[in-house]
């Protein structure tokens, strides 16, 4: 049966062959066609080199592990929140309100270019825009700039910003994300414990309503309560150990990695803080000239201690003079 079928196929297709005219064409073309030169040593090695390099790059990327957005589950936040993941490699990834990754920035070496917080802020603003509260028309000043200034009068965004950073990441990297928060009028910031042992620290960035600054009609979204009267300053000591002190002359220095010292600092800071409920506490992180050894974990420990002393409104300020406004 098989042989019969094959015989029928042979009979049907036996005459099938290229058109003789096309075959002649090909033969004539082949007579004149030159051959490509044989590849040299480099030509033989290069493709392998490229393949090996691509494999190594792929292996390296795999070894870096999953993107920060895929990290372990984090405590849920009440209400809508965007999350900023900052990994130990200095990559900041924003996750939207629905959890999808929005974009990743390579923060790179310190100091960080201020253009990056502006970019992060633009992405944050676009993400939280649908949640923006309505503008109260009565609060908008009747000036020709009102259409431009209108959005500034919406008030703080109801969307929270959750910071989820690796313990050893320099605080400067986290600070880049904080500097972006005002662009989207985010004031509710939750810092997750990088060691996951303690509850998250929730702080509200000082915000007392919109204000129009006098210079060229520029709208400033934040009227920051600066100077709050008291500030805690973090900086490495001469040996690089993270320390904190109250920004007042003669105050002792507290070692950030000492729980007892931190508790003492918190008590002193709470006592020194003005009674005005709108006053915020300053928290300033200063780098050393040769780099920043204050990590996210160090700052989180201070925030945690201050929270225990009733401080829930912190103005973050950087040594370079940048502030969260």
């Amino acid at each position: 049966m098989t042989h019969d079928l094959e015989a029928r196929l042979r009979a049907a297709y036996a005459p099938l062959a290229p058109d003789p005219a096309r075959a002649d064409d090909l033969a004539a073309t082949l007579l004149d066609a030159p051959q490509a030169p044989a590849p040299g040593r480099l030509g033989r090695v290069l493709p392998w080199g490229v393949a090996i390099a691509a494999t190594l790059v792929g292996a390296f990327l795999l070894a870096r592990g999953p993107a920060p957005a895929d990290r372990a589950a984090r405590p849920a936040h009440d209400g809508p929140a965007v999350t900023a993941f900052v990994d130990a490699h200095g990559r900041a990834t924003l996750a939207g309100v629905d959890g999808r990754a929005l974009r990743t920035w390579e923060l790179g070496d310190l100091p960080i270019d201020l253009a990056i917080p502006a970019e992060i802020g633009a992405v944050l603003a676009a993400e939280v825009a649908p949640y923006a509260p309505p503008v109260d028309p009565d609060s908008v000043p009747r000036t020709p700039d009102a259409p431009t200034l209108g959005p500034a009068f919406r008030g703080p965004s109801p969307v929270a910003l959750v910071i989820d950073a690796a313990p050893d990441v320099p605080w400067r990297h986290v600070e880049s994300v904080l500097l972006a928060a005002p662009h989207a009028m985010l004031v509710d910031v939750t810092f997750l414990d990088p060691e996951r042992g303690r509850p998250a620290v929730r702080q509200r960035l000082p915000f007392v309503g919109p204000a129009v600054a006098g210079d060229e009609g520029e709208a400033r979204h934040y009227r920051v309560l600066w100077f709050p009267g008291v500030a805690v300053v973090l900086r490495p000591d001469g040996a690089g150990a993270p320390t904190a002190f109250l920004q007042r002359g003669g105050e002792p220095v507290f070692f950030v990695r000492d729980d007892g010292a931190l508790a003492d600092l918190a008590v002193r800071a709470a006592a020194a803080r003005p009674a005005d409920v709108e006053s915020s506490l300053g928290l300033e992180v200063l780098p050393l000239a040769d780099g920043d050894t204050i990590t996210y974990l160090d700052t989180f420990r201070v925030l945690d201690a201050l929270r225990d002393a009733g401080v829930n409104r912190v103005l973050f300020a950087a040594g370079s003079g940048r502030r969260t406004k």
Binding site: Y13, P18, L26, P37, A38
Partner: peptide, 30 residues
């Protein structure tokens, strides 16, 4: 040619590909 007829079904297409195949084979044989 038979393989190309099998792949392409149209004789003209198979002949085009057939010519291209042998020209490319000659050129790149080194």
């Amino acid at each position: 040619y038979l393989a190309l007829v099998g792949l392409l079904r149209r004789r003209e297409d198979a002949e085009d590909a057939w010519q291209v195949t042998f020209l490319a084979a000659w050129r790149h044989l080194p």
